[in-house]
């Protein structure tokens, strides 16, 4: 039973299906252990966005205010896609990297411990 409903075989309208986003997909990005940003952030961006653009525009736009941001050694960052380790290539698009609608990209920056070491 996918829902307790008075109507037999009730199905709901999926409000967030990808077709509703005018050619974009929603992608979430979170910076682990930097909780000054209270939650991961949400972007709406075309699936052919390159990972280079994510690195050069989306991520700095969201996180550059943090004092750790300029200390990030981008070659040392480890990445998670929906909880699994992955190695993104700058030139690849989100689609080819397997970043689909409502996927979560997390970046981990070991050695950067947030404000005063508080993981903020």
């Amino acid at each position: 039973m996918a829902v307790a409903a008075i109507t037999p075989d009730y199905t709901g309208e999926r409000l967030d299906r990808v077709e509703n986003f005018h050619g974009n997909i929603v992608v979430y990005v979170g910076w682990d252990r930097h909780l000054m940003f209270c939650s991961p952030v949400a972007f709406a961006t075309p699936p052919d966005t390159t990972f280079g653009k994510v690195l050069d525009e989306l991520i700095p736009g969201a996180f550059a205010q943090h004092p750790d941001f300029e200390k990030i050694d981008w070659d040392q960052v480890s990445w998670l896609l929906n909880g699994e380790a992955f190695t993104p290539d700058r030139a690849a698009t989100l689609e080819t990297l397997g970043v689909d609608h409502k996927s979560i990209i997390r970046l981990q920056t070991p050695g950067l411990e947030g404000i005063g070491g508080s993981h903020s």
Binding site: G30, C38, G61, I115, G116, G117, S120
Partner: peptide, 27 residues
């Protein structure tokens, strides 16, 4: 352990005239 330093940092930012607002919509 987890919050005071974050809040003190935000207070510093405010004093410097750069009160922190998150520029991106949340998940």
């Amino acid at each position: 352990k987890h919050y005071r330093k974050r809040f003190e940092h935000w207070r510093e930012m405010e004093r410097a005239g750069e009160r922190f607002y998150n520029p991106t919509l949340p998940m």
